[in-house]
Amino acid sequence: MEKIYLDYNASTPMAPEVVEAMKPLLDDFYGNSSALHWAGKPVKELLQKAREQVAEVIACSPREIIFTSGGSEANNLALKGFYFKNRHKGNHIITSKIEHPAIINPCKFLEQIGAKVTFVDVDRYGKVPLDEIKNAITKETILISIMHSNNETGTLQPIKEIGLIAETHGIAFHTDASQSIGKVPVNVNDLKVDMLTIAGHKLYAPKGIGALFIREGIQLEPLIHGAGHEFGLRAGTENTLLAVGLGKACEIAKQQVGNPQIKDLTDYFWSQLKDAFGDQVVLNGHPKDRLPNTLNVSFVRKIGQDLLSAIPNLAASTGSACHAGSIELSPVLKVMDILEEIGMGALRFSLGRYTTKDEIDQVVESLKRIL
């Protein structure tokens, strides 16, 4: 079997259009965007265009976009920056138990310096029940952070409904949309969010670049202090090369939303697996409310890593890890109360823009030979 990549939720290749957009900056446009002379002005224009392209994909103002080094930094800026600036109003944060470590670990850090954090549960599909959010709110609650879609199962969260709850209580609301941009519609006004995270390498842009949407009026303390770059929220000369790449990727992502090709391939993949393995293969996550490219499935009473090891040319992810002969489920599957005999055989297949039907057929045939 040829090398097949079905791990697009982990990272995407750069789109050819993104590479082409970045090429001129490798030879020219070396000036500092803050400089007022002939070398700085065109760089500032490129940076502004990139900011506009990012803003357009989520329907916000360019002034509400802050470039970061990626999704992790954007999440840290949202959580720590908001807490440090607003802790005089309260010290309580609400998030979920299935968040990415770039949310979980900053929250645990904030707990060490005085914050109180409630990690709410999810249902068996990995979705946050609205009652969990409502019941967690206290007079001290200043921030809610719930991911837009889960990176492992693809389950989409009821972000708009949570946003309405937050708005009613006067609480700021952040969502990590790293996995969602370009796959499903994301409009910050429809979703009622005050902050939103974007990660470049999840949408065919380079690694090392991301962005944070910060609604006008939301006050954050910078994590990096220095000069007044990025509207005073992130000191350091902007990386125009990578920002241009992210901008182009967002421009393409806006055009890709609604394209049924990847969802059709994902549905085809699932139907082929069901036909081949019947009740021995189980879907993890919500059957409908999930990312169109994500298929997290368990092969009952099998070990996911063993299956991947038997297909060395396949790039995919497992939902469990082996330690000294024992199986440890991923925190996400564990919180969803997936039985160990099911969860230990979990594999996450995440399809992308360059996945083909022939590749899906090859993977299914390989799994048939193994099982």
Rank of each mutant, 00 (worst) to 15 (best):
L203W: 08
G154C: 14
T197H: 03
I142N: 00
A199I: 03
I214R: 02
A177M: 03
E221N: 12
V186D: 04
M147W: 06
S145M: 11
L241T: 04
L130R: 14
F231P: 01
E216F: 08
T168K: 15
P129V: 06
T197M: 07
T175V: 12
R234F: 09
I198F: 03
D190Y: 14
A166E: 01
H174T: 15
I165H: 06
G217D: 00
Q157A: 10
P222W: 03
L156F: 01
P222L: 12
I181Q: 13
F231N: 14
K192W: 01
E216R: 15
A172K: 01
V188L: 14
K192F: 07
E230L: 00
P158A: 04
E221K: 15
T153F: 00
T153E: 07
G236Y: 07
A166C: 11
E132P: 05
A211E: 04
I144C: 10
V186I: 14
G226M: 02
G232I: 02
V188Y: 11
E167H: 14
P185H: 02
E167R: 15
T155S: 11
A177E: 11
E230G: 00
Q157I: 07
Q219C: 13
L164W: 03
E161I: 02
E221I: 06
I159S: 10
Q157W: 10
T237H: 14
A205R: 04
K192A: 10
A136I: 02
P158R: 01
N239E: 13
T155W: 10
Q219P: 04
H148C: 08
T168D: 15
I165A: 04
G163H: 00
G200R: 11
G208E: 06
Q219W: 09
E216H: 14
Q219I: 14
A235R: 01
V193H: 05
L203S: 06
G208M: 10
I144P: 10
N187L: 05
V128K: 06
G208A: 07
V188H: 12
T141Q: 10
A211L: 08
P129K: 09
L156V: 12
D176K: 08
F213D: 04
T153A: 10
T197L: 08
G210F: 11
T155A: 09
N135P: 10
T168P: 02
G154I: 13
G236T: 06
P222S: 08
H229T: 13
E216Q: 15
K139D: 15
R234Q: 12
